[in-house]
Design a protein around this nucleic acid. Structure first.
Lengths: 153, 153
DNA sequence: TGACAAAATAAGAATTATTCCTATTAAATA
DNA sequence: TATTTAATAGGAATAATTCTTATTTTGTCA
């Protein structure tokens, strides 16, 4: 069962690479295999440590670069975090964010429906929530224009 | 009008500092004044460049440390971003995040209501949205326990 | 199958962002 | 105005990432 699902995922991975004109290298396979085992949100360093156990002489740079490549073709996501460089927001009124995944800009927007979102009961019981925000990700107007036909290759 | 609002904000700033037993230094004043002028999400480096124009020999460390201090007492917010160290998420199913502002951990959770949030029309018209997520921030169960009486001081 | 062109890799240097360290200075209080 | 305690400047140290270059490998096609 486990291996069947795993094989399906590997097939999906290989197909995606071919579609995107990415070469299917043993390094990329090894990294992908570790990724589908990951339950949390690993850093590049954490992935490097895991992968090198199977792939003795893989370099950090390859792991890091490959993770970034995977995120570009939609195999994995880069999650938002308290980032570096840290960005400070002097606007303490409730508002929401649009992140451009290309240029990295964050745009504020207001939305009443989002402001009124309820915190789920199971979350309230476990965590002390002091702020909520809807984060939308995608491509901003400038970046969309710039690469309008980029996936027609 | 402008100066009145600005004075109110400065008064609020001074009161907040006193409440929190923080000294009101010229450096902190200068940094706060720049902050309330900021419309975007400046980095520490950007703030340093702005502030040093008024405050010739201020150090980067002071700016950075002060911004962090301000965020701790709720004067400003640290916004989520594509962070460093980057965190990669192999789970591409829709889910949401709880960020602990103390330990930095990000916890996944599922919520149907959140999944069904509509993208506002004005956003759709301007940006190409490919992902949405609700991000809750606060203190996780472990960190809440650890500092249960920390604000009684 | 073998050769070729383009892409990917390893290794380490370089860069960027941040935090730490410590002597000095300044704010708050009496 | 003297004292105590926190805050600062400046620079060293660290952490995370990206860049550079020579080498290797993949995918393709004869």
């Amino acid at each position: 069962m486990q291996s069947k699902t795993s094989n399906d995922l590997l097939k999906f991975f290989i197909d995606t690479c071919k579609q995107q004109n990415l070469k299917v290298t043993p390094q990329r396979m090894a990294i992908y295999k570790e990724l589908i085992k990951s339950k949390n949100h690993p850093s590049a360093e954490a992935m490097f440590q895991k992968v090198r156990r199977q792939f003795h002489n893989i370099s950090f740079d390859t792991v890091n670069r490959t993770l970034f490549t995977f995120s570009e073709i939609g195999l994995i996501d880069i999650v938002e975090g308290h980032g570096r460089p840290r960005r400070f927001d002097p606007d303490m009124n409730m508002h929401h964010h649009f992140h451009c995944i290309k240029c990295g800009n964050i745009t504020d927007f207001r939305n009443d429906a989002y402001d009124n979102l309820e915190i789920p009961e199971n979350i309230k019981q476990k965590f002390m929530v002091i702020r909520k925000r809807v984060v939308l990700k995608g491509s901003c107007d400038k970046c969309s224009k710039r690469s309008e036909f980029s996936n027609a290759s």
